[in-house]
């Protein structure tokens, strides 16, 4: 079984809902959960770093994970905290890219790691799961569009020629 960088806790047995797969049948969800390896991360321990080849996806079971983007000089540019249920590394996996951010445990956390090849095989075998990802990404894109519209409505005239 492929490994992340954390301390092995056991095969994934909990039923934490992975938000990107909301709406899947319990059987399909169980199939996905069974692929995972549950790992424990100490405070500050890195799950993956910017530029590392994508080895798989990480699914936060408990605790908090700090996700940040830094520039070439190591300056932190953007950051957010991922919580229980969030799946990290999906874009890198889908687009066959290196990780575009660094993920570090913020306090102790438990994270389920699923290797890239297992996720690919799972998605090929479960069209409903793949479609669920499409729906969730579409939902996120809709929110981003709403934000863009709001910014355009409220701020564009002020921003123009700033």
């Amino acid at each position: 079984m492929g490994e992340g960088k954390g301390t092995f806790v056991g095969d994934n047995t909990d039923l934490t809902i992975c938000e990107i797969f909301e709406g899947l049948s319990p059987e399909t969800l169980k199939d996905f959960q069974a692929l995972g390896r549950k790992e424990k991360y100490a405070d500050g321990k890195m799950l993956f770093g910017t530029g590392e080849p994508c080895s798989g996806v990480y699914w936060v079971s408990s605790g908090r994970v700090d996700v940040s983007v830094s520039d070439d000089f190591g300056r932190r540019l953007q950051g957010r905290v991922a919580r229980r249920g969030e799946l990290l590394g999906l874009k890198a996996m889908l687009c066959d890219e290196a990780y575009a951010a660094t993920a570090q445990s913020d306090g102790p956390s438990e994270v389920t790691f699923v290797t890239r090849s297992k996720v690919s095989a799972f998605l090929s075998a479960h069209p409903d799961a793949t479609f669920s990802i499409v729906e969730q990404l579409s939902h996120r894109l809709g929110i981003a569009f709403d934000q863009l519209r709001l910014l355009s409505d409220l701020n564009l005239s002020l921003l123009t020629d700033a």
């Binding site: 874009k91 998605l123 069209p127 793949t130 499409v134 990404l137 894109l141 355009s152 564009l156």
Partner: peptide
């Protein structure tokens, strides 16, 4: 599923571009 994955890739990239624009505008 192959087409769904391609659609997910495109949505994922579109989302990233949209977030970048939100950041730039806001």
């Amino acid at each position: 599923p192959e087409a769904s994955l391609n659609a997910a890739q495109q949505l994922s990239e579109n989302y990233q571009v949209a977030c970048e624009q939100v950041r730039s505008l806001g």
